[in-house]
Amino acid sequence: MPDPLIALSIATGLLGLTAVLFWPERGLWARWQHARHLNERVQSEDALKHIYKCEMKGRRPTLESIAGVIHASLDNTAELLSAMETNKFVSTLDGDIHLTPAGREAALHIIRAHRLWEHYLAEETGFEEAEWHGRAERLEHALTPEQVDELASQLGNPIYDPHGDPIPTASGQLISHGGQPLTKLPLGTPGRIVHLEDEPAIVYAQLVAEGLYPGMPVRIIEISSERVRFWANGDEHLLAPMLAANISVVAEPVTAEQETEEPLSPDSDTLNRLPIGAYAEVLGIANKCRGAERRRFMDLGILPGTKIKAEMRSPSGDPTAYIIRDALIALRQEQASLIRIRKPQAEAQR
């Protein structure tokens, strides 16, 4: 029989080694797999995407900016660019880097793949919103155009990605959302968010943390060079103009229905804050609630106008059971916080 101490230390060592090697996503094996994908194809595709985005925004792509995006030295980037020029994807005129028609098509293909993956991650998986972009950045390089079409058809040919960006069609058409930065929206004009810029990631995370989503109605209350104060979906938000410029909106004509149905007023609340025994009327489901969960809510009859009563709370504190269209349905706190209600009034009894 081996000495217990020796056996213990050998076993602990082996377990530790296995963990270091195979830990999901952070183990050596996962890192190696990841690194293997960061090859030339990825770099040239990322470069194409970058140049395309710069062209769309009317900025000038430079050798330095490309090198920054693809995490390569300037020399390697120059080498990559000249290879791309030989392949007729880019042309350099007087030091300006331009996409050729072939290059533009290739760039759109990658953007299509990226946005389809984001849609997939949002609708068909349980990953957190903050992870969608990063994962899609890796997945977008893996598929051939045929496989991308396959993915699109499996997803039911979605037309928008979860950030509100239109997904380029298979034939390479990109229909613009036609939005303008929030900062350009005239004071008091109702608008609707059509897009949140997902780069840089830090800014995007801040916008998400504010609870902003494409599709939300907005209205600017106050705008100055230091801050933008606006209503979005019944809540007041305060952002620096630099951040607010990353929100694209379209102006929307007000209809009588919206004035009543979408109250841009502080009298809305979320279901989780409804006290036991009180009634409330549903205003809507938060836009960040997507995929299976959103459809399930609607199947259960949680729709604008539905009367809900908070009936009882679990003895362990969560979930809470609500009476929804005569049935007693338990929802967890985090789910109930996705449902917007009109604040219960004292006489709101049926």
Binding site: A292, R295, R296, D299, L300
Partner: peptide, 8 residues
């Protein structure tokens, strides 16, 4: 089922 429109 509650519905026939979801994907369960």
């Amino acid at each position: 089922t509650y519905s026939l429109l979801s994907t369960s």
